[in-house]
Design a protein around this nucleic acid. Sequence first.
RNA 1: GUUCCCGUAGCUCAAUCGGAUAGAGCGCUGGCCUCCGGAGCCAGAGGCUGUGGGUUCGAGUCCCGCCGGGAACGCCA
Length: 599
Amino acid sequence: MVLSQDAKRAREALVEALRGLGKEPPARLDLRGIPFSGEWGLASSVCLQLSRDGAAEEPVPEGLSKKEARKLVEARSRERAQALAEQVAHRLRERGLFSNVQAVNGYVNMYFDTADVARRLLRDVCESGESYGRGEPKTGSVMIEYGQLNTHKEGHVGHLRNISLGDALARIMAFDGYDVVRATYIGDIGAHVIKWLWGYTKWHDGEGPDDDVGGWLQRIYVEANRAIQENPEYEREYRELFARWDRRDPEVVALWERTRKLSLDYLHRLFEELGVEFDAWFYESECEEPGKRVVQELLEKGIAEVDEGAPVVRIDEKLGLKKETYRTALLQRSDGTSLYFTKELALTRAKFDQYHVDRSLNVVDVRQSLYFQQVFKVLELLGYEQAARSAHVPYEYVTLATGPMSSRSGATVNLDEFARDMYERAISTVSEKNPEMPEEQRLAIARDVSIGSMKFGMLDRDNTKLLVFDREEALDFDGFSAPYVQYAHARACRILEKAPEIRWDELHTGEVSPVEVNLLEAIGGLPEAVERAAREYKPLHVVNYVYNLARVFNDFYRESPVLRAEEELRNYRLALVYATKVTLENGLRLLGIAAPEVM
RNA sequence: GUUCCCGUAGCUCAAUCGGAUAGAGCGCUGGCCUCCGGAGCCAGAGGCUGUGGGUUCGAGUCCCGCCGGGAACGCCA
């Protein structure tokens, strides 16, 4: 990567200059872009860091208030930092590595030959193409689990945040060089399923789903759940059905299999429409028995013990922790039936034993934090060192203005319904902008825009922030949104379409204007954004990145005419446009968002 | 009771390992289509970063207290 090469060069030169002045540079040398300059370069605050040296020799006069004394110390530090920065700048200038070096406010600003960096960066992007931004291959495989939906229920916008985050994280980490295995875990058995089966048998026997499979599943579930809650007789019938399931009554199993299949087809369609694919599908129903075996093993090894008839692991006690940290994990019910925890043990172990992944990342909402800490800790106690490297990737959940979503009560926003609203809104906008366009093309663009908007709306805030779903806001295609970025991409495509071939071997940049510097800087930032997003498990960094790139490109678009420029300048600007297009496309792809060429 | 998360412009959110002048969108006011596509752009108004201490040359960012909101904590998933 061009910019990291330059950063390395700057870092080495700085270290040498500082040592030459008898100053030992800190291990982590600060290096960042220069703000407000409109020129290409890197800045370091290292002299400010070192400016405390010698502070002790200058006593603060008596009689000053704390605040005044502090101000004095700060002023002196600034002076010392500036003096040092000037010395460093002088030495760096003598080396002649940079086109310019300045000492400002205690910072050392190192400027590069912009034209040279521009040529190298643009060629790099051109040569790398869809690989531009990719990180070095990393050792060790990582399984990312997300999209844990239930059968016999609908998918709703709460799931959308999970799917969007998980899918983007998987794409980003794979792009950053990790060997990623995408996994999902479907809740195809449990109380909710039996309740559904009861309600179906009771009031909907023989019924099939209408076009709206999710809605149909959901209605039956909500109805059954409410009835069972309100009527003890129904409660008894439901328990009875549960017992028949436990006995594997053929009739119940057959109904379960049939409706499970129907649910899974629906879930496959949901994922497909969102452009999400998995390498591994796990099912709760398949983890029940293996889970109980893990519990047995934990008991035999003395990790778990029986308390009030149920197997538990007193994790804090086992680890000798005084403070409540992991607390006590309940592994299984006292009647021997499995809990979510039981199955999670088998699931996680399967990831390590059968898929041989080195760590597991579970994208699940923040309310499960303690739970996952317990799961991983228990497996660690069982000897799985992979569990120590594994992590829960938490995010705050999606609520409605009226309160939390609840699939039990039916207070949800159906995913199909939301997608349809978005799609229709997109169709009307596309048609308005492109009345002459063939319908097929309009629909394809509307699809890219609506799906992209849905995902963008789920990714555009930090994982730690609650998301209050607002339909009107979601349907807005202006401003900080997927279409804004997609539109910049389409604009770039439009220019390239009308332009002659770019002559990459004759890139003469001439003078590089401030907007062009900003654009180059933005283009050059993709690898860092990817790396950071992967490291912090935050696709938001890529969202911010592509938006900024689009915004800077729009500045360029306004100020730097491309097609009308004279030949040499046009060639260079075309290269800039091409690099922007490639970079936007790569960034959007990492978010699972399509980049249409026309819109 | 223990623990975790959040609090930044009217609203929704950004802000790199702590770094120079805290930025966007929406909304509001006023402009820009003889000009590569106006899903765009420009200008303006709008801030004691909840609050009080502390650490630091430097704090929206780290530490402690308080206030406000949310969440988790043994037979739910």
